Simulated scan of single mutants.
Amino acid sequence: MVWLTAAQALEVLNVRPQTLYANVSRGKIRARADEGDPRRSLYHRDDVLRMARRANGRRKVDIVSSEAMQYGDPVLASAISTAANGKLLYRGHDAARLADHASLEDAAALLWQCDRIEAAPALAAARTDAGADSALAAGLLVLARRSAAAAPSLGRPLTELRTEAAGVLAALVDAMAGIGDGAISLRLARRWHAEQHADLIRRALVLMADHELNASTFATRVAISTGASLAAGVLAGFTTLTGPLHGGAAREFAQLIAQAQTGNASDAVRDWLASDRPLPAFGHPLYSDGDPRARALLRHLPKMQPYEALAIAAEQQAGELPNIDYALSLLTAHCGLPQEAPFVLFAVGRCVGWLAHALEQVQANRLIRPRARYTGPAEILNAGIY
């Protein structure tokens, strides 16, 4: 559900109606007329949730703690990247500007705080996707095999871990792009017979390199906080990435595209929203004015149908703008890349960020172990169950 009624918004915010209306008038919460009753207004869910999170400081500690696993929390100190003022920053550098000239290897050097990452020589033994029917399967295999043999991450010099990080990245690239040499973006372009689009692939990889404490990055940090190897941490992030609400959003968007092609974009969006499922490839809670990664990539892509019609319908019906999943899907269509290309670009690019967070977590040397707020029955005595 993208839009909330006044009663629903007030329940989430726990404020008086006047406060809700004031936030609307200040532009902090988007509102629109209810099509079923023009006398009533509906309020944008993401804006309401964002305002509710800002008010958490006034709420009871146990309630705040129980909500700490919801979007926007928990908060971990990190110097790697942040979404701020409508931009994505990598150690203070605008990711969109970096994508104009940097390679994924450059982004890795910046995020890992080391010299330029050179493409590691490919080894025949590193190829583990024999018989694998997809890049996803190949990536899972290579990371699982490295995890089974790799040393724990804690208690080791940072220079040694950076070298290992480069090896983990190289192994994943070998598995998903095929053994070869040269820049990672060019290797993917060759794999997909799209050498003329290598620069677009390079831009996409840089834009995907990191995105603060997203679900897969958090999974990586949790694993590394136990002392697990870098490969095991990346494996945790990689598996989390496969979910449809994260790196698997492109597969959901493909269904929406198919519906638009068989009918029309407006009806496809309306039917999708009516099913009470999140609209894939549109909107992002961190960017009320649109995903800057999508804007940076879409500037270099042509308008195509039904993508353009879906973007118009999504903004009209849900107030949502295209996000990076939309841009990756459009890039795939424009360049004639295989269907799995959005996931590969996401996984290969984000591997750099996972490893940056893994290195930072090793230095923090602190276990991430949230507590549960128990909601089950109290202790049951003399129940006759043995």
Rank of each mutant, 00 (worst) to 15 (best):
G167E: 13
A22P: 01
A249M: 05
A254K: 11
V168P: 01
D210P: 01
G227H: 09
A296D: 01
Q259T: 08
P342W: 07
I257K: 07
M208I: 09
P38K: 11
W192F: 14
L104S: 00
L256R: 02
A102R: 02
A135C: 04
L76H: 05
Y326S: 05
A232G: 08
Q305H: 12
A268E: 03
H93N: 12
G227M: 08
A294C: 10
A77R: 14
R145Q: 14
A314H: 03
K87D: 06
A314L: 07
R127G: 10
Q18N: 14
P306F: 12
P342L: 02
H197T: 04
Y21C: 03
A347F: 07
S41H: 13
G92K: 09
A372D: 08
A372G: 04
R295G: 02
G376M: 08
E379Q: 12
D210V: 01
R373K: 12
P306W: 09
S185Y: 12
D100A: 12
P292L: 03
A318C: 09
A333V: 10
E360A: 15
V344Q: 03
I201H: 01
A268N: 08
E340P: 03
P306N: 07
E379I: 13
D271N: 11
M1L: 11
R251L: 08
I368R: 02
A22I: 06
L330W: 03
A198R: 10
L331W: 10
Q339P: 03
A341M: 03
D115S: 13
M51N: 06
G27L: 09
R59E: 13
P285N: 03
D73A: 15
I80H: 02
G319I: 06
T82S: 11
Q255C: 04
A177S: 11
A107Q: 06
L111I: 02
D100P: 00
A372Y: 09
Q261W: 10
I385Q: 12
F238P: 00
T239F: 06
G336H: 11
H193N: 14
A77E: 15
M208E: 14
P342S: 04
I201N: 01
Q255L: 13
S288P: 06
I257D: 00
S147Q: 08
A341T: 08
A125S: 15
N214H: 07
R299T: 13
C335V: 09
T332F: 00
L161I: 05
R366C: 09
